[in-house]
């Protein structure tokens, strides 16, 4: 079947993830929304790989996964460190750039 439904689904998931990043205050939930966006991108890659007929898209999705994993590791370590010092994991706490 044509990749169009998959792409539409990917777009929807991406947008929902984007809204989630903007709306949630807990840092870890924000991170999860970012993961959702990355996954939506992966879906698009795989759909296009099938449409084009070579595996480059799947390789790209694979790399995205690897990098996402590394990113999650470091990001969560940072959140843990911040939580240890500040006792709060709210994203709104980092507002020193305020006018």
């Amino acid at each position: 079947m044509s990749p169009t439904p998959f792409l539409v689904l990917s777009a929807l998931l991406f947008s929902i993830g984007a809204i989630g990043v903007l709306v949630r205050r807990n840092a870890i939930v924000v991170f999860m929304c970012i993961e959702l966006m990355l996954n939506a991108g992966n879906l698009a890659f795989v759909s296009f790989a099938r449409q084009v007929g070579n595996l480059d898209g799947q390789v790209a999705a694979f790399f995205v996964m690897v990098v996402a994993a590394a990113e999650v590791v470091v990001g969560l370590a940072i959140i843990v460190t911040i939580y240890r010092t500040r006792r709060s994991a709210s994203v709104d706490d980092a507002s020193l750039l305020k006018y």
Binding site: L22, V23, R25, Y99
Partner: peptide
Amino acid sequence: VRRWQTGFVRTYALSML
């Protein structure tokens, strides 16, 4: 215009989106 710099990450994320 200065007031747009709320310091909140989410505001900046909104502008990026």
